[in-house]
């Protein structure tokens, strides 16, 4: 009883964390310089990009950087769907007492994480390299760093991951833990009973 309640609780919590992340910031960058002591901010959510985007675009146009425009990013359409699907899968896994049940959302999470990071590094590279050759100021192409403090031209920059990345990571940890436990349990069970036991009681209701 206790074990199953814990499993359900963990997976439901993980599902909630992922679902909530749809509305939370994934990643942000803050830029400061002498003339922007208050800082310029860009914060990326799964669904939108907020912050001083107009000002950043105005500054970026001198070096011919493409405009940061929500419509440009297919990721902003894909991520909420992926996050939603993962949340549903995770919640469903809570009620499917199969040893592999948690592997499904975990695989989806891993896939989304790979897609997310690949996509992000691709975008950072793309924005720093696909510079308009006709721009007023020509600079060496560069890749804005994904994390930590750096200097880009006259700006000090600080990039960080936020709740929208961290909570799904925690959720991933939880799901991985549940999967590990399920696997332990599965192995502990007699080989002959493996399939049978779970088939007989697919929702894991004891009694």
């Amino acid at each position: 009883m206790q074990t199953n309640t814990l499993r359900t609780g963990l997976l439901v919590t993980a599902a909630i964390l992922v679902a909530a992340s749809i509305f939370l910031p994934l990643w942000g960058m803050t830029l400061v310089s002498v003339q922007y002591p208050e800082g310029l901010r860009m914060v990326v959510y799964p669904t939108k990009i907020v912050g001083d985007i107009t000002e950043l675009n105005l500054l970026n146009h001198y070096i011919g950087m493409a405009e940061i425009d929500e419509d440009f990013f297919v990721e902003l359409d894909a991520l909420p769907i992926l996050f939603g699907a993962i949340a549903v899968m995770t919640a469903a896994a809570a009620f499917v007492r199969r040893w592999w049940a948690s592997a499904v959302p975990l695989a989806a999470m891993t896939g989304t994480a790979i897609y997310g990071f690949w996509s992000m590094s691709r975008r950072l590279y793309q924005f720093g390299h696909d510079l308009d050759p006709n721009a007023a100021i020509k600079i060496e192409p560069f890749t804005p760093p994904m994390i930590g403090e750096h200097v880009i031209a006259q700006f000090g920059t600080y990039a960080y991951f936020s709740w929208g990345t961290i909570l799904p990571a925690v959720a991933g940890g939880i799901v991985a833990y549940v999967l590990w436990r399920d696997l332990q349990e599965h192995r502990a069970a007699a080989p002959g009973r493996r399939e049978l036991g779970l088939l007989r009681n697919p929702l894991g209701v004891e009694g």
């Binding site: 942000g28 803050t30 400061v32 002498v34 800082g39 000090g156 600080y158």
Partner: peptide, 9 residues
């Protein structure tokens, strides 16, 4: 993290 201000060069 969102409020952290990097050093001004």
């Amino acid at each position: 993290l969102g409020d952290r201000r990097p050093t001004v060069p």
